[in-house]
Design a protein around this nucleic acid. Structure first.
Length: 422
RNA sequence: GGAGGAUUCGCAUAGCGGCCGAGUGCGCACGCUUGGAAAGCGUGUAUAGGGAAACCUAUCGAGGGUUCAAAUCCCUCAUCCUCCGCCA
């Protein structure tokens, strides 16, 4: 949620931001208009209420005829107050519904444009030359079968499309990746968290996943709860309606959870393998920090993501995601894309967003220092999303016979330097 | 799933129609006292909106209702605790 005061004072900045995202500019003017009549209604209500409070007090003190006379007045006034209150509530709700549609302000450094207009910031590592190695790389589905690591056929049989089993080496890879991730996160000052994945509407709404993103969310209608698509949701909502002490900031959480995504509208995409699935596990980094620290924290999250890929010895590039492709909460977003040999392309494996105070304002999370209470900033970043990381590891580190070399960093957790055929 | 109890200012509580935005204790902050500290004493100590300020308005789990007036009465919901049942 955008700060309404900021919007009143800087409507042009907000208009420019909406334009950059390819979203409604008129919305800004609708909000300003609605806000103005709302404020008038609030004022009217408050004046009437004040009058009523005074009158009520005098009723209490009065006796006999005097009291009866005052009561007649008070009754009439009570009706007026009620009417004014109803009007005020309606206008407040209307204004809120409009404001909530507004996306976060773009970072002025974010590239403008659509999905294709990202800016590549850097390349790290060099894609392996399989021709030089003398063999044609197998894709992760084939490798997964040879290693007894991934079973998409039975996944489909039991749970439908985009479902899979991780078995044997596949399951062990997940445990190793998670353990390595949590160990790194601990070193970087994160508190490890296993959050609820079934959350209430307030948590989902507050984190901004019931807007445009709603159709990708699983809902359990009978109990009015949602399955989260990322632990960002329970991690952000963890401090909903709280005021955090400034000296505890930044507060960093590393959440490990299953993530559920309907993947509506992606029918043609990535139908093979486990790049795009309905359920996967992920270790997510989440930070609460002072707004003035947010940019630097964003860079730190990005660095930790890069460190992970480097430790996995996987070539990747970092892209600065363009305005039209940002989530509504993000002011700026960096994706890390790993090289996938059989696709001859870089594919997103992690992503980090700076949500500044936008998400915190919706969730009513603030911090307090000597100067008072202020909105806090929130940021999130993927440390490791298991299936995509498994894809990257298998494909990049495969040998001609289908065995796979384990990155040195994972070896202690996996207990082997090589995944063998079954 | 059934029965009962609870939810008030950081914590613990008081309040059960107007004197209550709300008392007390603890905690915390500042000051006095002290050689220093403890104790003691004094002052202050929620959030949001409006206003230059004085101050006004809202909030006593959430929402609705009764009333001139609700922390206080009624209804619905949520959460927590205790007991019973059921299950791992």
């Amino acid at each position: 949620m955008i700060d309404i005061k900021f919007l009143r004072e800087n409507p042009d900045v907000v208009r420019a931001s909406q334009k950059g995202r390819g979203e409604s500019v008129e919305l800004v003017d609708q909000i300003l208009a609605s806000d103005e009549i709302k404020r008038a209604a609030v004022n009217e209500f408050e004046l009437l209420r004040q009058e009523q409070n005074v009158l009520s007090k005098s009723v209490g003190a009065a006796k006999g005829d005097e009291k009866n006379a005052l009561l007649a007045n008070a009754k009439e006034l009570a009706d007026k107050v009620k009417a004014a209150d109803t009007k005020r509530a309606e206008l407040e709700e209307q204004t809120k519904q409009l404001i909530i549609q507004l996306s976060n302000l773009l970072d002025t450094d974010a590239p403008i444009g659509g999905e294709e207009d990202f800016v590549t910031i850097e390349h790290v590592g060099t894609p392996r030359d399989f021709t030089k190695d003398g063999f044609e790389p197998k894709d992760h589905v084939e490798l997964g079968k040879l290693l007894g690591a991934i079973d998409t056929e039975r996944g489909a049989k039991v749970a439908g499309s985009r479902s899979y089993y991780l078995t044997g080496a596949g399951a062990m890879l997940e445990f190793a990746l998670v353990n390595y991730a949590i160990q790194s996160a601990l070193k970087n000052g994160f508190t490890p968290v296993i959050p609820p994945v079934l959350v209430n509407p307030a948590a989902m709404e507050g984190t901004g996943f019931l807007g445009q993103a709603a159709e990708n969310v699983y809902r359990i209608e009978k109990d009015d709860v949602y399955l989260v698509g990322t632990s960002e949701v329970p991690l952000a909502a963890m401090h909903m309606d709280e005021i955090l002490p400034a000296d505890k900031l930044p507060m960093r959480y590393a959440g490990y959870s299953s993530c559920f995504r309907r993947e509506a509208g992606t029918y043609g995409k990535d139908t093979r393998g486990i790049i795009r699935v309905h359920q996967f596990d992920k270790v997510e980094m989440f930070s609460f920090c002072k707004p003035e620290e947010a940019k630097a924290e964003h860079q730190r999250l990005l660095q930790w993501e890069k460190d992970f890929l480097i430790a996995m010895d996987i070539p990747f590039r970092v892209i600065d995601v363009a305005s039209g492709d940002l989530g509504s909460s993000a002011t700026r977003k960096f994706d890390i894309e790993a090289w996938i040999p059989t696709q001859g392309a870089y594919r997103e494996v992690t992503s980090t967003s700076n949500c500044t105070e936008f998400q915190a304002r919706r969730l009513n999370i603030r911090y307090k220092d000597a100067d008072g209470t202020k909105a806090i900033a929130t940021l999130n970043g993927t440390l490791v999303a298991i299936p995509r990381m498994i894809v990257a590891i298998l494909e990049n580190h495969q040998n001609s016979d289908g065995t796979v070399n384990v990155p040195a960093a994972l070896q202690p957790f996996l207990g082997t330097a090589k995944l063998e055929l079954v």
